[in-house]
């Protein structure tokens, strides 16, 4: 398998750490992985994105122009990356704050209302885990137990008491994800 993912949103939404957990989960499953962030001042409050590649083979370019999957968390990122998903690819997005929805018809498009769910349960910190859960539901090459191990690896020890609520959020995401028809 070879999966090339772009995750994009605002700085502070947990974009980079979601990518990191994905990458760690890949390692747990003996995959090759790469994680390439946008970096610099644009991350301070502005947009942030990360390219994650998971593969059975040695990974070539960590920088890509097109992607198998896009996980999109704000309007700017949707405008920027919708056109960069390969035909037949996956587009998963959070509807919060979106006024112009996807228009492509050659993609599998799904919505996740992670922001409103995180607000409902009053735990903003698990927002990105709800989104990740949705992604895992749609792509079955990563096993949940490896993702939880990935979480353990990427979280510093002092946050390990939060693993349960994060694992719970993954499951919530799996339940809430729904297809979008335009």
């Amino acid at each position: 398998m070879n999966e090339e993912i772009i995750i994009a949103g605002f700085g502070g939404q947990g974009v980079l750490s979601m990518g990191k957990i994905l990458a760690y989960s890949g390692i747990m499953q003996n995959l090759e992985v790469s994680w390439m962030p946008s970096y610099g001042p644009e991350m301070r409050g502005g947009t942030a994105n990360v390219t994650v590649i998971l593969s059975d083979d040695r990974i070539s370019s960590p920088i890509l122009n097109t992607f198998d999957s896009g996980i999109i968390l704000n309007q700017q990122s949707l405008d920027k990356f919708e056109c960069k998903i390969k035909p037949g690819g996956l587009l998963l997005y959070d509807t919060n704050g979106i006024t112009r929805h996807p228009s492509r018809t050659d993609l599998q498009i799904f919505q996740i209302e992670a922001a409103s769910e995180a607000a409902r349960i009053d735990n903003q910190k698990v927002f990105n885990m709800i989104v990740l859960g949705a992604y895992l539901k749609l792509k079955d090459f990563l096993e949940l137990k490896y993702v939880v191990q990935g979480l353990e690896k990427s979280l510093p020890k002092r946050y390990h008491h939060l693993i349960d609520s994060n694992a719970e959020a993954l499951k919530t995401g799996m339940e809430l994800v729904k297809p979008y028809k335009n």
Binding site: K20, A23, I27, E32, V33, S34, W35, M36, P37, Y39, I59, P62, I63
Partner: peptide
């Protein structure tokens, strides 16, 4: 900046 910032195994 690419090799410096990217994460890999």
């Amino acid at each position: 900046g690419i090799i410096g910032q990217m994460m890999e195994k």
